[in-house]
Design a protein around this nucleic acid. Sequence first.
RNA 1: GCCCCGGUAGCUCAGCUGGAUAGAGCAAUCGCCUCCUAAGCGAUAGGUCGGACGUUCAAAUCGUCUCCGGGGCACCA
Length: 586
Amino acid sequence: MKNEISQLVQASLQKLRQDGILPAELPADIKIERTRDKQHGDFACNIAMMLAKPARCNPRELAQKIVANLPALDAVSKVEIAGAGFINFFLTSGSCQQVIGKIFSRKEAYGLSQKGKGKSVQVEFVSANPTGPLHVGHGRGAAYGASVADLLEAVGFDVHREYYVNDAGRQMDILAASVWLRYLELCGEEIVFPVNGYKGDYVWDIAATLHRENGDELRHSQESVFAGLPDDEPDGGDKETYIDALIARANELLGESQYRQVFELGLNTILGEIRRDLEEFGVVYQDWYSERSLTSAGAVDKVIERLKLSGHVYEKNGALWFSSTEFGDEKDRVIVRENGQTTYFASDIAYHADKLERGFDRVIDIWGADHHGYVPRVKAALKALGDDDSKLDVLLVQFAILYRDGKKAQMSTRSGEFVTLRELRNEVGNDAARFFYVMRKCEQHMDFDLDLAKSRSSENPVYYIQYAHARICSVFRQMKEKKIQRDSERGQASLGMLAESHEADLMMALVKYPEVVEKAAMNHEPHQLAHFLRELANLLHTYYNAHAFLVDDDNLRDARLNLIDATRQVLANGLKLLGVSAPEAM
RNA sequence: GCCCCGGUAGCUCAGCUGGAUAGAGCAAUCGCCUCCUAAGCGAUAGGUCGGACGUUCAAAUCGUCUCCGGGGCACCA
């Protein structure tokens, strides 16, 4: 509808140009907006005000001329000029009715479009290190990423969802060492746990599995483990140096094969839990992309070579640096450490180069906002490699702060005590969690009210929307109980009887739905859909209270049933895009 | 010090690629179930859009400065 009106205005402007009333070369970016106030009709156009100055005439007069030259359109009942020069379009009451038939024929496909047809987009999100369970911060990225991906798919993009598994770096070695030390404690050795180790309870669990499956086979005396190591932080040493030495000692004592065994057990256990968590949360991936596979395929070495050839790397203090400042970064970055190990950044360059090599039209990374400083260096690397960094969008998700009883229920990674995603899901349920996470735009620091998310009352927007869906289903159950025969075609033929303002408002909202999906998708803003669904639910509840649906008049009843059936479909479609269920009864 | 995000009703937030009288929800007050789920609806009240200056016919929206809150500035990932 927006497009059709836009074309009317376009045609009128064209006519005015031909008649010499407007300069021929006048740029006209026609914007048709939905009005906020119904008094201003259904759509408004501000073009007259935009062109008034360049055309050197009074905006209201120009609006008059534009209106006078508008071609007719059946759906438009009235065009008015208002305010400083707005052109307001009023639609005929019948113009929205056809949406119901459209929804019936498209069903769960109503709202989908072809905007992104033929274009591929890769969406990488969560990608938490498999060194511990997902916490509530990851949950926001998961819910947001999943909805963004689903929205993009809804508007026709070929979407590839990916989780980058950091199964190679030093953090994984620290995990392996932590598991082994806990295992040694289970064996009865007395261990002073390193400051930098992973202290969460899940490490004990993995260690217990290790002990159960291997008995004392991996046991070494505490003396042999700690002999000759540098001091840990509490003793005045450096915790990083200390943990590296501890990892080296573990390798030495266990040997390659046993060390791998510990390492793999840690990785596989945690990754398995992460997969299960996300799956239960309704988050699916096409690919779990392993960092190790990147390394073993030589991709990291290859990309370092490419950077060397590009002339943007240099050696300093025994390390290899990438001069990212040449491409807008604040400082140069190390890609190969003094000890010969490549940095996480080096892997990430290889990974991003690989993404582009795979030929995606768009690449989207969804990161926690604490990584924002990382964006310029990744883009710098792509530029240095001669890749098109404009294909990459990095969406930063701000933190979520949990509140319980009006007080912060915050996590502290240090002690290993944090609220996990699983705890959150168990507490408030998947639906509430998915919806709450996505209710706020991602740049917004979010206050996640646990009590509100849990409450099964009107305060809770998730239940409010789901209730609207369930209520409609309930009406149809009532209909069957009362042995009322529904005739959908008769309803379609009687849509003209839907003359109440509640009905017009509801139909208009249904018409609007595809526009909302498209806008939410293109702007990566699922919260827009969340807000829309709340409005739609509100219109339904209002209508429900104002009018009975199961009335005696067969024609009117079937028309109304068609309207609420269509509403039910749209509620279900919208909730699905947000990963929230649409229950038939509550 | 530099960079990113936020500051809109008592609370949580929309609106921000400039448009008409700044909107929701919750909380508050008052109403509505012999009737399809009251997990609902209606009404009332609530605002110097953090502040200042600027650009514009028009600024919550754009620019500069400033104040407050959160985060980031590693040979960690």
